[in-house]
Amino acid sequence: MKDIMTIIIRLTLSCMLAATVMGVAFLVTNKAKKHNQHVNEQKVRYSLLGYSEQKPIPESMTLHEIYRYIVTSADGQSIGYLLPAKEGFIFVTIDLEGKMLENKPVQIDEAMVREKEERDKVIRKVVGSGKDIAFADQTIVVTDNGKRVAYLLDGKFTGFKTFIGVMLALDPQFSILGLEILEHEEDPGLGAEIKQKYFKNQFKGKSFETLKKLEVVKEPMPDGYVRALEGNAAEADAAEILKQYVDHDIYALTGATISSRSVNNGVKGIVKKFAYRLNILDSVLVEQKIAVAF
């Protein structure tokens, strides 16, 4: 009996010691990890817009971040947007019918707005007591000399196994400029192929109208199309081939139809919802004559 007690105590102590060491390591490395993630996201964003280290983003272009919140109060839900105004930030709440409820200035600086906890705290203060907020998603509006040139959307949807996280770039008409898979846990060699160029680039160039009724087809992919998507064809030929297939449905991955369908439906859903919400937001902003940065 005494033996058991000492064993229990020593094991508990060693577990606690181990936990402390791991906790300290986590605290030390977490900042660097977050920074890496941020840099990586930034890189993905630029590459979706067609820029890289060799071809840096022009000075005239700016990225404006919009954060969407769901505000729950005693008399129902409404949507709140944290928007960059001409100076500083504003928080606009819109009810489910598309009418503006409130427009309040938010005291928050550029660096703080990126930290989720900080941002949530500030917004909770702004909406006042008795209301609960939940962060929904974030969108980036890219402007060039004040004119909108693209939207960058983050999104998450269910795949075959767990969630698939993507980043989408849209032009102002909601045509897809690019798709990047950020995270997924699909099967290697099957569903994981969604990360491959020959799959994800199929979405490139699909217009909003095409996208609305985009389906997945189980057909062998034409060789020329694969080469063009992978970037292995000559540039002029590739453009020609890609144009030929621009309204074609998505070719499913062999052995991963469910993953292919999930991505298709997920992308469709993200774009459709975004277009709907943005139209409402824009009409509200015009109606109320609210000046925003984008």
Binding site: C15, M22, A25, F26, T29, A32, K33, N36
Partner: peptide, 18 residues
């Protein structure tokens, strides 16, 4: 095992970060 797991986690976190 606990000791090894602890140090592996530390190395894992460090590699992932740096």
């Amino acid at each position: 095992t606990l000791t090894i797991a602890t140090w592996v986690t530390v190395i894992d976190l460090a590699l992932a970060a740096y």
